[in-house]
Computed example of a mutant assay.
Amino acid sequence: MPWKKCSSERLGVLLAILAAFGFSFKAIFVKLAYAVPQAAPVDAITLLSLRMTFALPFFALIAVHASRAAPSLSRRDWLTLVVLGLLGYYGASILDFIGLAYISAGLERLILFTYPTLTVMIGVIFMGKTLQPREIGALLLSYAGIGLVFFHDLEFSGEARSLLIGSLFVFASSLAYAFYLAGSGSMIQRLGSVRFTALAMLVSVLATELHLLVTQPLSALLQPVPVYAYAAAMALFSTVLPVFLQSAAIRRIGATQAVMIGTLGPMLTIAFAWLLLGEPLSLIQLAGVGLVLAGVWLVSRRGPSDRAIAGSLRPRD
């Protein structure tokens, strides 16, 4: 097969591109599911529950396989896994899904890409790190870019309140994910990225299903076939596959280069949102994308002393 002739680095780049492609489609699937004609559109927790349910068998099998010959976890390990799973895959996801009901897929993806700068800020505030000039520049560039795209969307929609609500929910999602990344480094080193990711995902599945049971009747799971199709596609192509494609890419080319390739995500999301959802596209929006990606590029250029944080800056779903 042709891919077998690729060098490890080229294969890593290809895997990172495929992961970025998968991650970029998540917001598209969510928007398509929200737009399915029915008496009441599917709500965020129901759609997230369907996504997690379809992803559950894959992560359960992977968790069992990865844990087969591994040492057992302590009570403290399980507590850390629960906290991180609630932050990274349950909390961040439900906040993101709620936000997508209010804002465009393109703006959502850009706001999510604040997580590298937020992870740096968490390191500065809680871990005694020093804020470098390039990190200050990254913050200024990223939030200037988001501001441009925000006002671009405001010009086309005219709904300032909805835009603000949605943006705040997605920003809270990015912050939750940044806390997850900041706290996951030691666990990944001890458990390995595959085992840790699978177990954290299982925690999030349980939390999502409990949330659904407490807040919704079981009849909420009765949805039109297209909603099931979008949720299943989201689970496979925007959750399971890209998570492990990204892990494989990081092993071959390193976290920093994988992050840089992952910046394709916002561009892909905006392009597909324009093609498939009819979201407006303008030069101002593209300029905002450029500023955000420049900020990510700046914050990803780290020296040897910063590799611990850089290693956690993986493109998110």
Rank of each mutant, 00 (worst) to 15 (best):
G303F: 02
P224K: 02
L61H: 01
M234W: 13
A255S: 15
F150S: 05
E159T: 10
P71F: 05
V13R: 11
A69H: 15
E279L: 03
P37T: 07
M1S: 13
F179I: 02
A248H: 07
W297C: 12
P57Y: 01
G166T: 07
E209H: 15
A160L: 15
A233R: 10
K26M: 09
V243M: 15
R316L: 15
M127H: 02
G254E: 08
A92K: 12
L61Y: 03
L56C: 13
I188V: 14
L293N: 12
A20R: 08
S8H: 13
S173P: 08
Q223G: 06
F237K: 00
G123P: 05
R68K: 12
G278Q: 00
S219L: 12
S186W: 08
L95N: 04
P315W: 02
I309Q: 12
F171W: 14
L18Y: 05
A220Q: 00
G85C: 00
D306F: 11
I103W: 02
S72K: 11
A176T: 10
G192W: 10
A235M: 08
F59S: 10
D317V: 14
R302T: 11
R190N: 03
A144L: 11
L283R: 13
F25D: 00
Q132K: 15
T114D: 01
M121A: 14
L264M: 13
F21P: 01
S67D: 03
L276G: 09
G147A: 06
C6R: 09
E108A: 11
L141C: 12
G311L: 01
R307F: 08
W3G: 07
L275W: 13
F97S: 04
L313K: 01
Y115T: 12
T215I: 04
